Simulated assay, not measured.
Amino acid sequence: MNKINIVLADDELLFLQGLKAILGNEEHINILFDAKDGDHLIQQLRDAKTLPEIVVTDLKMPGLNGVEVTKIIHKEFPNIKVIALTSYFSKPFILNMISIGAVAYLAKNSTPALMIKTIEEVSKKGFHYDEQVMKYVHESITNPKDKKTKSTFDANYFTKREIEVLELICKQHTTADIGEKLFISPRTVEGHRNNLLLKTEAKNVAGLVIYALKNKMVSIENDSL
């Protein structure tokens, strides 16, 4: 069996070292190099004398995240196959990654055997989707809305206006206040708020605030309420 040249990218050092230890024991898998984040990965790919067949990348990384990394790889290195590795095993994330070029999707709690099998299948067939991923793919074919599904790691997931509304919500402004500040009607503000609830899957405004702070989407330090 020919060796499969791969590259790993993950900002969690212990997890990355674990991956290297597991995959490094496989005679038919060769790790060319690894990266601590998306920017590091892209720079190394651009400088590499030998390009990998497969890149296994985490989604949540500082700087360039896995979604933006996949877009760049798909554009600049079309022959490299991307396997998304993440804790976010939900429909929006999966469909988004597939739509921008990922050929496989692995949960971070997958077994080493499943990871090795996925790498082998991607090398052999060009892609590998398990039963759950295939279910989402089939649903996306029959549901037009799913074809436009994005994840929160996609730079275009939230509109500029939604981010503005979210920031003001986090600063505890009322619907009327937000409308006045952004020069839009209260009804329009409510529309943006409802879109935010749907996209973040938050149950209420408090959930929106927690989501925004957890994902470092807004800054509320220097604001006078």
Rank of each mutant, 00 (worst) to 15 (best):
A206T: 13
S224V: 00
Q43M: 06
D47Q: 15
I54Q: 04
I73W: 10
T159M: 09
V7R: 07
V82M: 13
H28V: 11
A102M: 08
I169D: 01
G179E: 06
M115L: 15
T188N: 05
L182G: 07
H173K: 14
T159I: 11
N2T: 12
P78F: 14
L213P: 01
L166Q: 05
G126M: 14
K49G: 13
D37H: 12
S185W: 03
S123D: 10
A104M: 13
L95G: 06
E120W: 06
D154T: 12
N96C: 11
M217T: 00
I210S: 00
A202P: 03
L198W: 00
A206C: 09
C170H: 01
F15H: 14
I184L: 04
K71N: 13
A212I: 00
I83E: 12
N79G: 07
K150P: 05
M1Y: 09
N5A: 13
A206G: 13
P62L: 03
V122E: 06
E121N: 11
E131I: 11
L51E: 11
Y129Q: 11
T142C: 04
T174A: 07
V137R: 08
A155G: 04
A104P: 09
A212R: 00
E68C: 06
D223P: 00
R193H: 08
P92E: 07
E139A: 11
T159C: 11
N2V: 11
E139W: 05
I184D: 05
D47T: 13
R187A: 08
Y88I: 00
G179Y: 06
L16D: 08
I220D: 01
K124A: 08
Q44M: 13
I100W: 00
